[in-house]
Every structure is written in structure tokens, then in C-alpha cells.
Design a protein around this nucleic acid. Structure first.
Lengths: 190, 190
DNA sequence: TTGACATGTTATCAGTCGATAACTAACGTC
DNA sequence: GACGTTAGTTATCGACTGATAACATGTCAA
């Protein structure tokens, strides 16, 4: 297999592995096993575990931004039209069906004590916000949209949608937060 | 020193230590050093590292809930009065000046793959939501409030407030998200 | 044919990890 | 003053970690 192909394969495996344990909780050997290659090879491709995690995190942020850009490109967006915001929100919940993407994002956002990870997270968030902002909406509206997204992240990360029957308050918060998109996130793709 | 006093001291030290590295990224030895005791003693007090983290996380969630309860108890709360919601929001940002509390919460919310941590997170979130709900406001309003809080968590965790000059988009999101409370969070207490 | 380069591997290492066992010192009390 | 309890320690262990070095294999050009 070509180096580039193998690289992509390992990156995909690393996304799955890091989504489970986060940066600190995932060994390069776990990534290697997930990818079906030897551990030293993983290290050699990316130099260090940190460099690998940063690339995984950056790609995850890119995927979200690109999904928003796709929605905004496919049809005119009216910031005053709630239906348009619904479309954008649904695109996000569709993305969140990929739990690996979601969890990598959460782990990245939480690892603020590792400077490079924090910087990568800020850059990712900045670009996503800039994309939403580009609709021409007021900053407050874009900020509300992002905040809503962060709540969805947290709820999925703590597996709220998988334990709706155990806690009435949490179930109320979950159904309220996801709204019409609840059926989507109940059927994850990973 | 009495066992209970020492226990509290180690719990406080563990909060500081876990706030930096999270569950997986913090060793019991790091906690021990922070507390000024031996590593085996830390393990013996709490049984396992996981039990220690769960206690730290639960206390963090409790502190937030209690802060909300205090605000709601000190004066009548009118869910239709924006000033009352401002008071509640300010109480939260005041809490977030304690970065250890914030980071422990973030790490807990992200560690969804460890069942016990996810369960503890759900319980914490549930109780906080229930407290906000108890104001008699519509679920949607309580949910918006929580979502706003999650965004503040993420922004602080990725150190957005410490790098306002590096990125105009992120600075806009930050000032918009924190609003009047921005001066507060710019002067953390830990 | 040979030699450079790319794609991998196995072997190994020094350090770290959570946990257990065994020991020590102080204190209260009968 | 012997004894149980509490509060702590040092010593040690087997497992794991990220990284490096050395080696193997295959491909393609001169």
C-alpha cells in the first residue's frame, strides 16, 4: 500500500481510538492495533502521538465547518428564516451521528492544558463560528447556534440519549435540546 | 491530622491535579504530590483512582447546583424577567473563575466511554437542569440557559479568553458569549 | 546488477502506572 | 504498660507507554 493510503487508514483508525480514550487515555499501540499495523510505524508516520492527535482533531473540526459550508452553499440562507436555521441544525445533528467525530471534538475541547491542542481547538471553533457568521446574521444569533451545538455535544458525550428512561429531568432536557432531530441521533453510525 | 481532614485535603488536591490532566492524564502520584502525601496513601483512602475522580466530579457538579439554588433562594425568581436570568448567569460565571471546577467538569463530560464517569456526569447535569427548571420557566428557556453555560465552559477550556488578540472571530464569539461577565472570567481565581 | 528509496517489521529501552504488602509511629484506653 | 486503632510510610510489582534502532522486503531507475 502507498504511504499516503496507509496514512489515511491510520488517521481513520486513530479517530476511532482517540474517540474512546482521548489524547491521554489512548496509546499509540491502541491506534496501531485499530489500524492493523505495528506501533512503531504509527509513531514514525506522524512523529509523535501529539502530532497524530492534532491531525485527527483538525480534520474533525474541518469536517464540521465543511458541512456548514455545504449547507450554506446549496441554497440561499436567510438569517431571519427559522427554517434555514433548522436546516443548519439538522446538518449538524446528522454529523453527530458519527460518534467518533463528536468524541474527538469533545476530548480536544477539554484538553486545554496541552497548549497545542487548545490552540487547534480555538482555531477549529473560530473557523466554524466564522462560517456561521458569514450568513450575515447578528453575532448573537450565531453564538446561540454554537451554544446549542455545544449542549448537544455534551449530552451525546455523556450518553444521555442512551439512558432516556433512567432520568425524567435529563430526558426532558434531551428531547428539548434535540427536538425534531432526536430520531437521528438515536441511530448513531459508529 | 484526622482522617477526615486529610481526606478533604487530598480531594482538594485531586481537583487541582485532575483539572490539568483529566482522568486518564493524571496519575495518583501527581495527586499525592499535590497533596503532600505518599501515592499509596491516596489509593488507600479512595480505593481506586476512578473512585477518587468520581468523588471529585460529583463535588464539582454539586457546587454548581448549590450555587444556583442559593441564587434562587435569596430572592424571588421571575422566569419572564431577563434581569433574574442575568443574575443566574452571573452566578455561573462567578463560579467559572475557579478554573479547576470548570476543567474537572469538562473532563468528566468528555469521558463518556467510562461508564461510571458518564453516569456521574448525567446525574450532575440532570440535577442542575432540575434546579433551573424549578424556577417554573418553560423547558426551552432552561435548556437555552444550560446551552449557554456549555459554550462558556468550552470557550474557557480552550483558553479563548486568554488569546482574544490572536483571532478576531474567536474574540467576537467570546465577547458575545460572556457579555457583561467578561471582566469576571478574565481574572480567574485558580 | 546494483543501489537508492519507500514500506514496513521486530527487538528493546527507560520511564511511568495503579495497586498491594509490609512496616512504623502515635494515640487512647482498659 | 500491653493492646487495638488510626494515620501514615517505604518497598516492590507486573503491566504499559512512547520512542528509537536495527533490520527486512520490495520496487524502480541507471
Amino acid at each position: 500500500m502507498s504511504g499516503d493510503d496507509r496514512r489515511e487508514l491510520v488517521l481513520a483508525a486513530a479517530t476511532r481510538a482517540f474517540s474512546r480514550g482521548g489524547y491521554a487515555g489512548t496509546s499509540t499501540d491502541a491506534v496501531a492495533k485499530e489500524a492493523g499495523v505495528s506501533q512503531p510505524y504509527v509513531v514514525r508516520i506522524f512523529g509523535t502521538k501529539l502530532a497524530l492527535f492534532l491531525e485527527v482533531l483538525e480534520r474533525s473540526c474541518d469536517r464540521i465547518r465543511e458541512a456548514f459550508e455545504a449547507v450554506l452553499a446549496e441554497a440561499p440562507f436567510d438569517p431571519d428564516d427559522d427554517d434555514d436555521w433548522s436546516r443548519l441544525g439538522l446538518a449538524y445533528t446528522e454529523l453527530l451521528r458519527d460518534r467518533d467525530l463528536l468524541m474527538v471534538m469533545m476530548h480536544g475541547f477539554s484538553a486545554g492544558d496541552v497548549d497545542e491542542i487548545a490552540r487547534c481547538s480555538r482555531q477549529g471553533m473560530s473557523r466554524i463560528f466564522a462560517t456561521v457568521r458569514a450568513t450575515g446574521c447578528p453575532d448573537e444569533r450565531a453564538q446561540e447556534f454554537i451554544a446549542q451545538g455545544m449542549l448537544l455535544n455534551v449530552m451525546l458525550s455523556m450518553r444521555a440519549t442512551e439512558h432516556l428512561d433512567e432520568d425524567a429531568d435529563l430526558a426532558a432536557l434531551t428531547t428539548c435540546a434535540f427536538g425534531d432531530a432526536l430520531p437521528f441521533v438515536l441511530s448513531p453510525i459508529s
